[in-house]
């Protein structure tokens, strides 16, 4: 296993008086593909927001690439893909090329311009996700699955070492979900990108992930897929609380 890219030490967080996360300890090593699962309201999205520095923990410490998050400046080493297939600015008339190019904005930096070499990078990222035939189409005319690929390309274009995906398959149909996981698998294996995938899809994900963690207010399990498969029904219901029946019915 490689060096730790994300480390959480005793992290707690509350909204108003409601405790969302309680003493979470957690580590993601370089080269791994970690699937983070847990019930709705279990704190998965809050955890990603903490890691991305959008909110600050009430207690505990977060380290990114071995550095305290407050001192961390290299945000372009981290890529982020949210559920944006559902919630980006839909009326915005942008081509696929323009959207992917936006992934370079912060990396290029203020008062510097988009150059020919950047154009090559953008086209390469579009090719990586298999969207080259749509490079100059309006993003609004694509399907949910295709849009999600474009958003991955937008994160890939800045060549991040760590990619965080928050429920990226919401609103994507089954067949495209399969292709999506194959893409993630390739990014992880062939390109060595470390992945943190937040999902409630416990089925397909376990075939591809190298690590699985279960979060429900605190971390209940962290191991490899075989260990996860060996968990008993009673363990799962402890993790998921009352939601265990809902989760299993999800995949019928």
């Amino acid at each position: 296993m490689g060096a730790p890219l994300i480390t959480l030490k005793d992290v707690s967080f509350s909204y108003d008086d409601k405790e969302i996360l309680s003493k979470v300890n957690f580590q993601i090593n370089k080269g791994s593909f970690l699937g983070l699962i847990g019930p709705n309201g279990g704190g998965k999205t809050t955890l990603t927001k903490l890691i991305l520095g959008l909110i600050k923990p009430d207690h505990g410490e977060i380290f990114l690439f071995g550095m305290p998050i407050s001192n961390f400046k290299d945000w372009n080493r981290i890529g982020f893909v949210s559920q944006k297939a559902n919630s980006f600015n839909k009326g915005f008339p942008a081509t696929v090329f323009e959207v992917v190019a936006m992934g370079l904005t912060a990396k290029i930096g203020y008062l510097k311009f988009f150059k020919r070499s950047h154009k090559q990078q953008v086209l390469h990222a579009i090719e990586q996700v298999g969207m080259q035939d749509y490079a100059y189409e309006n993003i609004g005319n694509l399907s949910g699955g295709q849009q999600q690929r474009v958003f991955i390309a937008r994160s890939l274009v800045s060549e991040p070492e760590l990619l965080i995906l928050d429920e990226p398959t919401v609103g994507v149909d089954y067949e495209n979900v399969q292709r999506f996981y194959e893409l993630l698998h390739e990014l992880n294996k062939a390109h060595g990108i470390t992945l943190l995938l937040v999902t409630h899809d416990t089925g397909t994900m376990t075939e591809y992930a190298t690590d699985i963690a279960c979060l429900n207010k605190t971390l209940h399990f962290h191991g490899n897929p075989n260990e996860y498969a060996a968990l008993k029904e009673t363990d799962l219901s402890r993790i998921y609380g009352h939601q265990v029946s809902i989760v299993t019915h999800d995949h019928e």
């Binding site: 520095g53 959008l54 372009n76 980006f88 600015n89 936006m102 904005t105 800045s158």
Partner: peptide, 10 residues
């Protein structure tokens, strides 16, 4: 286009 993504990317 996407304020959240822009903020996250710095």
């Amino acid at each position: 286009f996407d304020e959240e993504h822009a903020t996250v990317s710095g």
